[in-house]
Design a binder for these strands. Structure first.
Length: 288
DNA sequence: CACTTGACCTGTCCGC
DNA sequence: TGCGGACAGGTCAAGT
């Protein structure tokens, strides 16, 4: 679930809360969640101060003053939640996770030197945090291969169209989910943007007209921006850096709305499988 | 090479 | 009420 808008929302919250704080200790019980060498942890993490929090695609980057950075992928169920000193007192929304952390899904605990905490929770254990030299981030294999950021100025229609050409035999949904084509779209926003552009997700990418590519390009940007403005989507697990849910799904047109009427034509939204993923469409609005 | 499928995990929901 | 199985999204490894 954490796709670009969710990770962007977490980034903004973390930036407010952890920049300037110094890491006092780190604790983890599932090595795959935090596969770092003890030497690097001792030398470059403990005692380091947080300088900045950034995002690339669905990856969070926490820069430290030790010339190292923590890079974090939330995958499906990851959460990064900051808990301040008043964690045992009042002041948190009743539904908030904050008063309940750590819990059985907590994989990594960071303590800052003022008794505040950052918890990495991840029910399904697919997410990870890695400590890497800041100067080496762009050489990390996964990051090196990422396509353009859809909300940056260099993601033009022409760039999008050129990247689609390489994948003409694949269904368009599989292509926009491919992080090496463009960075940050996941299952929710793939379905939403394809509905908005009135393109069937199984359409072979090579069959798309120029007009459809132009439309899809602008709808991807619009859907991502709309979601960021609503704090992202919470389907089940996602929360922001303060433990709060996002509300974008109130505005969703098809995602998880199978059985409901299409908001454009009234036909029933159905769920199919495309490229191995659950896919929500209106068969009237979205023709192959 | 382009493209698809299975593995990684846990929790929840559905049918018998 | 219990239990097996399908399913959930993100990415990589392995297979066609």
């Amino acid at each position: 679930m954490p796709e670009l808008p969710e990770v962007e929302t977490v980034k903004r919250g973390l930036k407010q809360h952890i920049v300037g704080r110094t890491i006092k200790s780190v604790d983890f019980d599932w090595p795959k969640s935090f596969p770092n060498s003890e030497y690097d942890v001792q030398s470059f993490l403990l005692g380091a101060k947080v300088l900045d929090v950034r995002r690339r695609a669905k990856v969070l980057i926490i820069d430290l003053n030790s010339d190292y950075s923590l890079i974090c992928h939330l995958k499906m169920t990851g959460q990064l939640v900051f808990v301040g000193q008043k964690r045992f007192g009042a002041g948190h929304p009743s539904g908030s996770l904050v008063g309940k952390l750590p819990d059985k899904s907590t994989r990594v605990k960071f303590e800052f030197n003022d008794q505040t905490h950052l918890f990495f929770n991840d029910q399904r254990k697919f997410g990870w945090i890695k400590l890497v030299p800041t100067a080496q981030i762009q050489n990390v294999d996964f990051i090196k291969k990422l396509g353009p950021e859809p909300l940056e100025a260099d993601f033009t229609v022409q760039v999008f169209a050129d990247r689609l050409k390489r994948r003409s035999a694949s269904p368009i949904k599989a292509v926009i989910l491919d992080q090496t084509v463009l960075a940050g779209v996941g299952n929710i926003y793939a379905d939403e943007s394809l509905w908005a552009a009135q393109i069937h997700p199984a359409t072979k990418t090579g069959k798309l007209t120029k007009a459809q590519i132009v439309k899809l390009h602008s709808e991807i940007v619009a859907v991502l921006n709309l979601s960021i403005n609503h704090g992202g989507s919470t389907d089940k697990n996602y929360v922001d850096a303060e433990g709060n849910k996002g509300s974008y799904l109130k505005f969703a047109k098809v995602f998880r709305l199978n059985g409901s009427p299409c908001k454009r034509c009234g036909n029933v939204v159905t769920k199919i499988r495309v490229a191995g993923r659950g896919t929500h469409i209106c068969t009237v609005c979205q023709k192959t």
